[in-house]
Nucleic acid binder design. Structure first.
Length: 252
DNA sequence: CCATGTCAAGGTCAC
DNA sequence: GTGACCTTGACATGG
């Protein structure tokens, strides 16, 4: 089993999440920021290897505004050698990688523009992992999306959209149960139609479990991961007594 | 220099 | 109907 954490390392004094305001966008600003972010990512990964933390979620901010219409910069070519070097380090130390695009990615929205923007953003994540030359075990985790007061049809829209995604993206995409709308059981049903692996978020499940125990949920989600997808990923986080969220760990 | 309002984006719920 | 919340930090403005 591998254990890790998402995005931010509080111990080494750099951030791979650095970004800037859209208003201050420029190519120079982007290059500066991505240079910093990749450099810091590299430091984080080395720190992680030293501490035997072989699972890491790379921040979506690693290339700010990558899928925004304002960005025409070919960052994959510009940073080719750095990206390849980081990818090689990841592969040689057998580090497991995930990414988790934010809540604005909604593949089942009734609004086509929102769906298309979401696909573009997911493609950026896919491009980044591709640029690291990582195999299909490096995953992109998303939630199913909105309910729109018609859950069955909303699930159908997700399935249709997923089926029409290009293969390279489908190979990396996994869905995660959320705390409100789509439970593990819902995700398992979507898996049955699409084959998409289900990432088990224990914390969300304990808020909204639809009568399924942790251990039943666990055995069901594990079965959705094939050899090509790698060891199943689990998202585990906890609350401090006062209700503040104190952190995440992940295992796989 | 520091405090604090705001940041690309959607959906849901409390009020 | 408005605003807080979501993975949370960090940018950017005004003092």
């Amino acid at each position: 089993m591998k254990i890790g954490y998402p995005c931010i390392n509080l111990s080494i004094g750099c951030s791979s999440n650095r970004t800037f305001r859209l208003k201050s966008y420029s190519e120079n600003r982007l290059v500066d920021t991505v240079t910093n972010n990749l450099h810091c990512l590299w430091k984080i990964l080395k720190f992680n290897v030293f501490h035997n933390l072989l699972f890491f979620r790379i921040t979506s901010d690693i290339v700010p505004f990558a899928s925004h219409p304002i960005c025409h910069f070919d960052w994959r070519t510009f940073f080719r050698s750095e990206l390849a070097a980081i990818g090689e380090y990841i592969a040689s130390h057998d580090i497991r990688i995930s990414m988790h695009p934010g809540q604005y990615n909604v593949l089942n929205s009734p609004d086509n523009d929102i769906v298309n923007r979401s696909i573009k953003e997911l493609k950026y994540h896919c491009d980044f992992l591709d640029a690291l030359n990582l195999n299909a075990k490096a995953k992109i985790q998303i939630h199913v999306g909105g309910v729109y007061k018609e859950k069955d049809r909303s699930i159908m829209r997700f399935i249709k959209c997923y089926q029409n995604l290009e293969k390279s993206l489908k190979q990396r995409l996994v869905i995660e149960n959320d705390e409100r709308s789509y439970t593990v059981s819902d995700c398992i049903n979507i898996h049955a139609e699409t084959g998409v692996p289900v990432l088990f978020d224990v914390f969300h499940h304990n808020i909204n479990n639809a009568g399924l125990t942790n251990s039943d949920a666990l055995s069901k989600v594990i079965a959705t991961w094939s050899n090509r997808d790698g060891v199943p990923m689990i998202d585990y986080s906890s609350f401090k007594g006062n209700g503040l969220k104190i952190g995440h760990t992940y295992s796989n």
